[in-house]
């Protein structure tokens, strides 16, 4: 029963991701693009929940649908673009080239996934049965903290430096007047 429910939700979120992603990249208005993309990120957070990655689902909504999209919207509104500014170079040729290349890529990828036999491996296999109930009882978020603060503690600290340098760098880039 639980399996069927999660399958239904998988397809709902898959349709949400694919649909809103496609709408996002085809809108002419950049504000519409940002709004549809944030819907896409919510769908990805849903898929994370289906895969028992609860902490990442929350981080996805907070950081992507929250912070990054707000940053995008601020910049879009700051530069206040008119639609005719873009018509010059964006032609039908580019759209056809993009569609052909990406469809070929998708075909190759699906073929590879099929050949690797990934369609025979069920998801959440490690989360059912006695082993799974123990994992669920321990809590996914608490378990994620163990590798994060033991094996990966050095990358974790480096990320804080990276974020600091990104803050300083972006302020520096935007404040200085180029000529």
């Amino acid at each position: 029963m639980e399996k069927q429910v999660s399958t239904v939700f998988f397809w709902i979120f898959a349709a949400l991701i694919a649909g809103s992603g496609l709408i996002a990249i085809t809108r002419r208005n950049a504000v519409a693009t940002a709004m549809w993309a944030s819907l896409c990120f919510v769908g990805i957070a849903g898929e994370f929940i289906l895969m028992h990655a609860y902490f990442l689902a929350v981080v996805e909504v907070l950081v992507y649908a929250g912070a990054i999209m707000v940053l995008f919207l601020f910049v879009i509104m700051l530069i206040n673009l008119r639609e005719e500014d873009l018509k010059a170079t964006e032609g039908a040729q580019l759209h056809i080239a993009g569609a052909l290349f990406s469809l070929g890529f998708l075909g190759a990828l699906v073929w590879t996934v099929r050949r690797a036999g990934l369609f025979d491996i069920p998801l959440n296999a490690k989360y059912v049965g006695a082993e799974g109930t123990a994992a669920a009882a321990a809590g996914e978020t608490a378990q994620l903290a163990v590798p994060l603060f033991s094996d990966y503690v050095l990358p974790f600290e480096i990320v804080s430096f990276l974020l600091l340098s990104a803050i300083v760098g972006s302020v520096l880039i935007t404040k200085r007047r180029l000529s």
Binding site: K3, S6, T7, F10, A14, I17, A18, G21, E47, L50, M51, L106, L109, V110, V113, R114, G117, L118, F119, D120, I121, P122, L123
Partner: peptide, 12 residues
């Protein structure tokens, strides 16, 4: 719902 479905969705 298999790993292949999820990877294919990521591919899309």
């Amino acid at each position: 719902m298999t790993v292949g479905h999820m990877v294919t969705l990521a591919g899309v």
